[in-house]
Amino acid sequence: MMHVLVTGGSGYAGRFIVEALLAAGHSVATTGRTEPDAGFFSGPVDFIGADLEPANAKRTLFNGVDGFVHAAFHHVPGRFRGGEGDDPETFRRLNLDGSVALFAAAKQAGVSRAVFLSSRAVYGAQPPGVVLDETTAPQPDTLYGEVKLAAERAIAAMADDGFLPIALRATGIYGPAGPGRRHKWAELFATCEAREDIPPRVGTEVHGDDMAAAVRLMLEGDADGLRAGSSPDLVFNLSDILLDRHDLLAEYVRITGLGAPLPQRADASAFNAMDCTRLKRLGWTPRGRLDLGGLV
């Protein structure tokens, strides 16, 4: 079993990762500015007060750590794209320089496995209908995407025989939130209940448990197999279903019996879906369907 440090472990995505690691028998520590309430996690989790300031990324943070997962991200509440608000300098310093500093400290401390939670935003605008795989040339069109891509590249450059840092380009993580928290579609469901107009939308989604399973695969899988599977750039796409908001709300209405009107279907012909063949070849098996368990 491993001792794993997860930054941002009490965040929406981070909590799925912590719970998956606990379920697998690993011991976990998480960092953040505020310690979560007792009972937030299903088992014991050590808490270390920390932030993303590059100067605070100390080697001692990783004492006794075997694996590192970086899920923390500084942004305006509720926004990733555009999450810099009116302070792009701080956004870049914390999310790029801070991330790179943490991975450098992890490597210096002798951590062997590290996972960076990246984003499909690195691809930016692509020709209509083109399917995105890891060989697609990134062309980020937001500061969020630029920062994620720059961090990916800096972290990958640290790889050697003793240190394996891998980036997961995740998209649309959904699922139940932690105690006292709201899930990502709570406001959308409330709008549906109020029978207000909802604009059409289509997007790629992955359940948080499936995302966390991919993180575990990066930490536990054969190192040579992971290197070969992600060669040469040490990145994997992480997505599951292409979901139209019409279908999401149709399932919500079916379960709840609301009888609320549904939005029009979006035009998905130009959407850039993600190809996750590279990850699936390593044994990752997402559920392949919408799962509203714990959300309704």
Rank of each mutant, 00 (worst) to 15 (best):
T204F: 11
I48D: 15
N237D: 12
E251H: 02
G25K: 05
V45Y: 01
Q108N: 06
E193N: 15
G9D: 11
L21Y: 10
G283A: 04
A223C: 05
A154W: 01
I198G: 14
R227G: 10
K58V: 04
R201E: 14
L238Q: 00
M2R: 04
A137Q: 15
N63R: 12
N237T: 12
D141S: 10
T142H: 07
R169S: 11
A260M: 06
R254Q: 02
V45W: 02
D247R: 05
V147W: 07
E134Q: 05
R113P: 06
Q139M: 03
A250K: 01
T34V: 04
L61A: 13
S239W: 09
L149Y: 02
D97R: 00
G129H: 06
R92A: 02
K58L: 14
A29E: 03
L249H: 07
L61W: 15
H246A: 00
V122Q: 04
A270F: 08
R278A: 15
E193T: 15
A55M: 10
P165F: 15
D141V: 09
A214S: 13
E84T: 03
G172K: 02
G67I: 05
F271P: 13
G82M: 01
A101D: 08
R254Y: 12
A273D: 05
H207N: 02
R33E: 11
D267C: 05
A194I: 13
L238C: 14
F40D: 09
S27F: 15
F189N: 15
L22S: 06
V296G: 00
G257D: 14
V76W: 05
L295C: 11
I241F: 03
A260V: 06
D244R: 04
P286N: 07
L279E: 08
V28E: 07
A170C: 11
L94M: 12
D267H: 01
N63M: 13
G25I: 01
R93S: 08
R79W: 03
A38F: 11
K107C: 01
L262V: 00
E205F: 02
G288W: 15
P261C: 15
F116R: 11
T277E: 12
Y144C: 09
A72N: 02
A223D: 15
Q139R: 10
E251P: 08
I166Y: 10
S230T: 09
D240G: 10
V45K: 09
A104P: 02
D210K: 05
H3S: 11
L168A: 12
Y144S: 00
